[in-house]
Amino acid sequence: MSDLQALARTVYDACIPNHQKLYTSNEILAHIPKRDPQILLDTINELLGRGYLKTLKQGDAFVYRFVTKDAVDRTRSLTSDEALVYQHIESSAREGIWTKILKTRTNLHPTVLTRCLKTLEHQRYIKPIKSVKNPTRKIYMLADLTPTIEVTGGPWFTDAELDADFINALLVAVERFVASRSFPKQKPNSGNPNAIIPFEAGYTGYPTLSDITQWVKNSNLTEVELSEADIKALLEVLIYDGKLEKVIGGTAYKAIRKIEGAVKQGFTEAPCGRCPVFDLCHEDGPINAANCVYFEKWLAEI
């Protein structure tokens, strides 16, 4: 083992506990005897050659990152093609990389690429992930990383699919919570259960966004961390559903009073409002008011 190799090893050992850090050449120089730039250069070359060091560019300056032994062993066991593919996947970090882009970047033959990906996946170096934005694309990333929110789509998605049940359950829960705060508690002896009376004008006890977020957090409804923005999206949906409304200058939320057994509006209750052949109905046509089966049924319901 030459001196250079030994020196390289000491530098590597000194820096590896901190391997996430990016080193500038000056920082590495501190580990070089006599701070000789020539020796530094040789050492860096040695480390680079063995794959223990990686050059990166930060702005105009070069910076270095030390590679852990595992990773070095990993790449060392790979063929050159596999190493190339691995490198590209690694560089994509938490975003993942689409196989098509991988192909153009590596310039490998499709079959070679597929084989490489297969081996890498088999060795558990990489994993395929699903992106919310492009569900059909085959995207790979390193096995030990977790995908970013852009890829997973945030708390609403499970396996890149919108989790409708989860959302609906949350919607119902939030609505109930807001409703419980929107009206005074019923007197136990009040005769009419439908007579929900309103709070007076100027009442400020309606729940705000942070109130609701806090409540969701404390309620053990879900393991998923929900931010205020997520809760706001939920509330928006509830407003669009006509279940809540904004009050007090849009800062708080209030449930809209629901009347049990409210009268439906006329049009859709009559057969015509729901008629699937309404456009074909004509006084002298094959479908008309006299022979209408829907009227027949509806009138029988008296």
Binding site: F267, C272, F278, C281, N288, A289, A290, C292
Partner: peptide, 20 residues
């Protein structure tokens, strides 16, 4: 569009009354 549907539905109801 919906007004147009209303008128039609109303005509149908009156016609149905006549029929009944």
């Amino acid at each position: 569009a919906i007004l147009n549907d209303f008128y039609k539905a109303m005509s149908r109801i009156i016609q149905r009354i006549d029929y009944e």
